[in-house]
Structure formats: structure tokens, C-alpha cells
């Protein structure tokens, strides 16, 4: 009877066993491999950056060509909107100055101001299981873990891993994502939970919830992870009365993202 293991099949079986072992470790201690992940992402980022460039240009080109008719219609609409917005701008300036003077009167502690870092998406893990993106900015650029990430339309996720040159964004649609939100009109709080599909659901709603379809949702700022007031999406209800969120951001066309950073004012030591 021949010996059932030759060299290659032995190493194959040993590596399969090792993979199972790693899976177990990854399941029970998911953060154990964070540094490995960021190291690999840092190593691959130059290649991913250059390879993704032509694809993004092609995608922009097709988007522009197919959208010419839409552009004309949008232009007319935007001109109309612009006239209205100019009037609103003047109103906003007045309200802003009034708001500042009232805050001063109340001695209210204002939230820290935020600055942002813009970055281009270089890799996408948009598959059936994990919803995340990789951007070529990291600790060198001042990115910190937990920072909120926005597209031009609204919230898309938060930073979960930061390497020297790259960072991973966990999208709000991922099953591991939970975002505290508030309904803009009614002030009701809830949690938006990712389901690995394009429409996250609302959980932890009160029994007598008065949230109606189409209500605008913003981040509540609870937990301190996301700042208050970031636009998130609108409420939709499915046939089983489960409340979901149609996000403002279109995840299919995201190319540039903004990473919010707390702008902490520099403190100067007093010279004695």
C-alpha cells in the first residue's frame, strides 16, 4: 500500500489546517490581525493606486457621456435653485450671527470644529460579505481610528484600521456597522444597523415610534464616534413594516471621500 502523503499534499493539508486555525483566531480575536492587515494594505497601496487610476478615468468618462442629456436638465434646475439659495444664503448669514451672539450669551460649550482630509478610493472590498474601502491616507496624514467618513452627499462610514499610508473605511452598510441617528423633524433616536445590503435597517426604535417614511436622518452624536448632524439618509418602510434607510450617498459612484478630523486647537504653555 503506497504512503498516502507526498510532499505537496502534506504541505497542502498542513496549510489547510493552519488556515482553519487562523480562521478560529480571527473569529475570536478579530483585532489580533489589525497590524498585519494594515501592513499588507500599505505594501499593496502603490500598486492599487496606479492600477485603479485608468479604471476610474474610464468610469468617469462613461458617466459623463451617458449623463449629457441629464446634465442639460440639471443645469436648468440648478439655475432655478441657485436663485432661491442666494436668498437663503443671506438669511443663513443673519441666523448664523444671531446664533453666535446667543451662544455667547448662554456661555454654551460648542462642539469642536472639524477639518477634513480628502482621499481617493483605491480598493474596494464591495463583496457579499464585507463592505469596506481602502484609501491611500494613513497616520502620516493624520488619520485616526474611528474618524467619520463622508462622500459629497452624506455619511458613508468610519475608519476602522489605520496604517502608515493606508486606511480602511467600514461602510455603514456592513453588518458590523452601527450608527446612532436621530430623526431631524421629531428628534427621535434610533440605531442604524448595516445588513450587508444597500439599505441598512433602523433598530432600537421606541414602541410608540412616530417615524414616517421620508423622514430625514442625521447622526445623533451619541457615543462620540460620529459628530452630531452629519446627513445620513431618508426613512423607507418595506412590506413587512421594517424601517430601513435609503442613504444619501450613492455607494456605486464614490471615488473621493472626506475623512473628518477633530480640529483640536493648539495649546500654548505659558512662559513663566
Amino acid at each position: 500500500m503506497p504512503f498516502p502523503w507526498n510532499g505537496a499534499s502534506f504541505s497542502s493539508s498542513a496549510l489547510i489546517f493552519l488556515s482553519i486555525l487562523l480562521m478560529g483566531l480571527s473569529a475570536f480575536k478579530p483585532h489580533m490581525f489589525d497590524s498585519t492587515r494594515t501592513g499588507v494594505a500599505d505594501s499593496f497601496s502603490p500598486v492599487l493606486f496606479w492600477v485603479s487610476l485608468p479604471f476610474q478615468h474610464v468610469s468617469i468618462f462613461f458617466h459623463d457621456v451617458t449623463g449629457l442629456a441629464q446634465l442639460q436638465a440639471d443645469n436648468v434646475r440648478l439655475e432655478q435653485e441657485n436663485i432661491k439659495l442666494r436668498e437663503w444664503y443671506q438669511t443663513a448669514l443673519l441666523l448664523d450671527s444671531e446664533n453666535k451672539s446667543l451662544r455667547d450669551l448662554l456661555n454654551l460649550k460648542v462642539e469642536p470644529h472639524y477639518k477634513h482630509i480628502s482621499a481617493r478610493v483605491i480598493a474596494d472590498a464591495g463583496n457579499a460579505y464585507v463592505k469596506s474601502l481602502i484609501v491611500p491616507v494613513g497616520t502620516k496624514d493624520g488619520v485616526i481610528k474611528g474618524a467619520a467618513v463622508l462622500s459629497s452627499d452624506g455619511l458613508i462610514g468610519r475608519i476602522v484600521e489605520v496604517g502608515e499610508d493606508t486606511s480602511r473605511i467600514l461602510l455603514v452598510t456592513d453588518i458590523n456597522s452601527r450608527v446612532p441617528i436621530v430623526v431631524e423633524d421629531t428628534g427621535q433616536h434610533a440605531i442604524m444597523a448595516g445588513e450587508n445590503v444597500s439599505v441598512p435597517i433602523l433598530i432600537h426604535l421606541p414602541q410608540d415610534s412616530e417615524i414616517v417614511q421620508g423622514s430625514r436622518l442625521i447622526t445623533s452624536g451619541y457615543g462620540g464616534m460620529y459628530p452630531h448632524g452629519l446627513p445620513v439618509g431618508k426613512v423607507v418602510t418595506d412590506s413587512e413594516n421594517v424601517m430601513g434607510v435609503v442613504l444619501f450617498s450613492n455607494f456605486d459612484t464614490i471615488q473621493i471621500v472626506r475623512i473628518l478630523q477633530k480640529d483640536i486647537p493648539k495649546t500654548h504653555k505659558k512662559d513663566n
Binding site: 488556515s19 480571527s26 463583496n127
Partner: peptide, 21 residues
């Protein structure tokens, strides 16, 4: 498999296991 898992955010070892099998 390990590199793909690291880049895509998969549990480490999952793709390696599938590819090796």
C-alpha cells in the same frame, strides 16, 4: 489567500482555506 483576506477585510484564513481546498 492571506493577502486577499487582509486587503478585503475578510476573516484571516478564510480565502486561504477555500483556495487550498
Amino acid at each position: 489567500g492571506l493577502c486577499l483576506d487582509s486587503l478585503s477585510g475578510f476573516p484571516i484564513g478564510l480565502s486561504s482555506f477555500v483556495f487550498l481546498v
